[in-house]
Design a protein around this nucleic acid. Structure first.
Length: 212
DNA sequence: TGCCAGGCCCTCTTTAGGGCCTT
């Protein structure tokens, strides 16, 4: 797969439209089955963190007060990500915060998101839950640290993405999956997924390695 | 006082309701 960036936000709540702000972000560049580079930082948006969120993430108001400004962090991660396509687990959530935090700086998103949750619902429909933590256990992915911290969750979502890519090859014979194809798959009606993948020009039969 | 997210997806559906998932 082309290089993609898996991102994860920790925030003060669920909705930037309701005044919630980002408190931490991580971005992981993935290419050819492995992590090439990482960015992670807490950020100070000048807000306090509700107690139930502190309990969930372990991120306290004191921790973000000591962190660099949200503006500085978002500019850094915007540069780090560049034009690479984005992936997140439940991307409708992270894309809202990505757009809202950039908007405050007069910046705008340059690329589309793919969603590892929507993909896992199609490629691993037998999983008992499609929460990131539950999928990690279901798929036997190695631990990346405490869940609900940005870098651990971004790395876990990256591992999940690589597993999903393997499953596309194993189940459907689809290899070298592009970000654009991931977005097609995540939007495909479940009942039509196999037909859609069978008709892909990208689909290639398993290759036979020849000795040189 | 009472309200307070929103997109996806399933079903007892489409003139709707409710669970999942993110913090």
């Amino acid at each position: 797969m082309e290089r993609v960036v898996v991102i994860d936000f920790e925030t003060t709540g669920l909705s930037p439209a309701q005044g919630d702000r980002a408190t931490e972000i991580a971005a992981v560049i993935v290419h050819n089955g492995s992590v090439l580079d990482r960015y992670q930082s807490l950020m100070n948006a000048g807000v306090s963190i509700p107690s139930h969120i502190q309990n969930l993430t372990g991120i306290s108001s004191a921790m973000v007060r000591a962190a660099p400004s949200a503006a500085r962090v978002m500019r850094e991660v915007f540069e780090f990500v560049g034009d690479l396509p984005l992936v997140a687990h439940n991307a409708s959530f992270d894309s809202k915060f990505w757009d809202a935090e950039l908007e405050r700086l007069g910046l705008h998103r340059r690329q589309a998101f793919a969603c590892s949750m929507l993909l896992s619902r199609r490629i691993l429909p037998q999983a008992p839950s499609h929460k990131l933590e539950a999928l990690a256990e279901f798929a036997g992915l190695p631990s990346k640290g405490r869940f609900h911290r940005a870098l651990a969750d971004a790395e876990m979502a990256a591992s999940l993405l690589l597993r999903l890519e393997e499953e596309l090859g194993r189940q459907f014979g689809v290899h070298d999956v592009s970000h654009a194809l991931l977005r097609r798959i995540q939007k495909a009606p479940k009942q039509e997924l196999r037909r859609i993948l069978d008709e892909l020009p990208e689909r290639t039969p398993p290759t036979i390695m020849s000795a040189r």
